Amino acid sequence: MKTLRVLHSLNELRPSGAEVMLRSAAAQWKEHGVEADVLAVAPDIGPFATDLRAAGYHVAHEENAPWWLVPFRFRRRVRAGRYDVVHLHDETLNFWLALAAYSAGARVVSTVHNVFPLGGKARAKRVVQRAILRVMGTVHVAVSEDVANNERRRFRNPARVVDNWYDPAFAPPTPEERARARAALGLGEHDVVAVSVGNCSTVKRHDAVLAAMAHRACPPELVYLHLGQEDEAREEHRLAVRLGLADRVRFLGARHPLEALHAADVYAMPSTHEGMSIAAVEALATGLPAVFADAPGLRCLAEASPAAVLTDVAPAALARALARAAARPAAERGQQAAAPVQRRFGMARGVAEHVEIYRRLLKPGRNSEAHRTT
């Protein structure tokens, strides 16, 4: 079996979906005969570069300015690296980098990681660009059914669905692991613990969790563990103080989430939209009940797990949903709740599907693959 050389091109490397999946899958690529490298096309390489190098990837950095020179430098890099496939993970310069990859003799896979709500000229431009790339043989991959539906409806782009995967280290805790996690985080025996994982942004809508905690329908013993990088102004921290919640909210920063997930009683994600949240999949894989906003990218995820519910994010509705989910009996948590998620979002399945796409692209008649959907 011929060894394939694949270049994964991303923006600044941060601990988000694509980067986390690549880190966990490093050994899996090699088992399939794939040599995978990572390139950050951004002003800075990003803090997650160290993690990807530690996992075994060759990680490089390409400045993304001036933008009109980036495709030429990208073409030289692809040709020098003798890459068979370029896998694009970012919308920035996506079209131009794909053209550069083709001119260097590589094939192209482009993964759409989010439900992009574009309209007007931006939407028209994406429609044309995606159509041109499909004609050239590009396989567009969507990370969830919601993303695929958005691509088809908004951009007339029939993308193939390959669900995101998660690191199998995320598993239900034993009673001893749960007790250690809660002790390490200073949680009391009677604390009801909600957790969210994600950097602060308007899309993540963490302020909705804070507003729900201030509502009378929320259990007064509920403690909120907030994992993720805060914005420079620390707006969410200041909101917690204004709402009188300072002693019930723990801003833990960007850190590995497994300990907090093992300590928690419910996972909260009130985002306005998602592509396919790895953080949410990881939470479900630990057997946690989850409360999701009734929003694109979360609806299909809720369908995949009996432990997940959808809700309005108004304070009263979200407070009640968190209270009900946290009160689920132990029999509805743990391995029983995690099993469907483990089957659907397992890493071996996702890596194998990508490798199958790569190898099909290198066979005669490869352009027909661009129009496959699942």
Rank of each mutant, 00 (worst) to 15 (best):
K2M: 12
T3W: 08
N11A: 08
E12D: 10
P15I: 03
E19I: 01
V20I: 01
M21H: 01
R23P: 00
E31A: 12
H32P: 09
G33T: 11
V41Y: 02
I45K: 04
P47I: 06
R53L: 05
A54C: 03
A54M: 02
Y57F: 09
H58L: 12
V59R: 03
W68S: 15
P71W: 07
F72R: 11
R73T: 04
R73F: 07
R73K: 11
R75Q: 13
R79M: 11
R79L: 10
H87T: 02
H89C: 00
H89R: 01
H89N: 00
H89Y: 03
E91K: 13
A98M: 09
A98W: 05
A100N: 01
A100S: 08
Y102S: 11
A106C: 05
A106N: 02
V112R: 08
V115M: 00
G119P: 07
G119F: 12
G119R: 13
K125W: 14
K125R: 15
Q129F: 09
R130P: 02
I132L: 15
L133Q: 10
V135E: 14
T138R: 03
F155C: 07
R156V: 15
P158C: 11
V161F: 08
D163H: 09
N164E: 05
W165P: 03
P168M: 00
P173L: 03
R178T: 11
A183V: 14
A184N: 13
L185Y: 10
G188K: 13
V193Y: 08
A194S: 11
V197K: 00
N199R: 05
N199Q: 04
C200S: 03
T202C: 02
V203H: 08
H206E: 06
H215Y: 14
P219V: 15
E221F: 12
Y224R: 06
H226W: 07
E230N: 04
R234F: 00
V241M: 13
G253F: 05
E259G: 06
A260C: 08
A264K: 00
P270D: 06
T272I: 07
T272D: 09
E274T: 04
E274L: 01
G275I: 02
M276A: 08
I278V: 11
A290C: 10
F292C: 06
P296K: 08
C300F: 11
A314T: 14
A316Y: 12
A323F: 15
A325K: 07
G334A: 07
A338I: 08
A338F: 07
M347E: 00
A348R: 10
A348H: 10
R349F: 06
V351W: 05
V351N: 00
V355E: 05
Y358G: 01
L361Y: 04
N367Y: 14
R372G: 13
T374C: 13
T374G: 13
